[in-house]
């Protein structure tokens, strides 16, 4: 037993050590600013900005190819954070952020085709074939992917309703 375990353990240790050294030597340098920007993004790889992933989008915005307002699910908050981080001017007029939204399924029209929960990047939709689907509001980032694939157009993005915890007085109007 021991005679078969020891050589394998030994082999694994040596190979692990070699790989560890190799990973140090062959480390791909990524600028820390790109990683910081990527941390600010939702990380759902929804692709609405036209980039295949949030990492690619972070790289593009650092290179100046995208505006700070490129991220639709991130909305105003993310755009401001990116602009502050990069020190670039921010034009919020181009951003039509209507406040946080959440996807809602119209149960009367849902045919249970499962397309929306297969495409959801945050696993915020629950359902199974030929059964009604439902959205977990806490996990939904309102990226709109489910809205695009729904064959019966029963998914809509609706403003988040204020709860007792989130409701505030509206600003006094002059």
């Amino acid at each position: 037993m021991l005679i078969s375990v020891m050589p394998l353990t030994f082999l694994g240790l040596i190979l692990g050590l070699l790989l560890g050294i190799a990973s140090r030597i062959l480390k791909v340098e990524r600028s820390s600013i790109v990683e910081d920007i990527e941390q600010l993004l939702p990380g759902t790889q929804c692709g609405q900005c036209g980039n295949p992933s949030c990492a690619a989008a972070a790289q593009a915005v650092v290179d100046g190819e995208l505006k700070a307002t490129f991220c639709p699910p991130g909305g105003r908050a993310v755009a401001e954070a990116i602009a502050i981080k990069l020190g670039i001017p921010l034009d919020l007029n181009t951003l039509c952020d209507e406040g946080p939204k959440v996807a809602r399924i119209n149960e009367a029209l849902c045919i249970g085709c499962t397309r929306c929960f297969k495409i959801c990047p945050t696993d915020a939709i629950l359902g199974s074939a030929k059964h009604m689907h439902v959205v977990f509001a806490d996990a939904c980032t309102a990226c709109g992917k489910c809205e695009a694939v729904c064959p019966t157009e029963c998914i809509s993005l609706e403003p988040v309703q204020p709860t007792l915890q989130t409701w505030v007085w509206s600003q006094p109007a002059l």
């Binding site: 005679i3 078969s4 050589p7 394998l8 082999l11 694994g12 190979l15």
Partner: peptide, 11 residues
Amino acid sequence: LQYLRILAFIL
């Protein structure tokens, strides 16, 4: 230890 061949090779 020929019986460990496949395991070791995979490693």
